[in-house]
Amino acid sequence: MATVIGQDIIIEGEVSSDEAVVVAGTVRGKLNVDGPVTVEAGGIVEADVGATVLSVGGSVTGNVTATERVDLLAGGRLVGDVKAARLTIADGAVFKGNVDMDV
């Protein structure tokens, strides 16, 4: 069973996991996941994020490192530097930061 942080939950501190994490609420601090991370619309992450795959439909503020890919969805917002093997940015997404891909 994956980890789900509901929309009215606020976590301040460090979240580490080796399974899928879905954020519909708020996470502040650190988010280190050896698995996919999904930030749903309405979800807020104010943390440095490490994940295999990061999917952003909500708001992420912090530096992102993904071993596989980062998908910034329409309506998503990402402020911070991204280091990932692959990055997609959907039309209508907001992004501010540097991108570092293995070129």
Partner: peptide
């Protein structure tokens, strides 16, 4: 989830 560790606060 089973594989998740949270150090800090959970409120809401």
């Amino acid at each position: 989830g089973r594989g998740t560790v949270i150090r800090g606060s959970i409120r809401g």
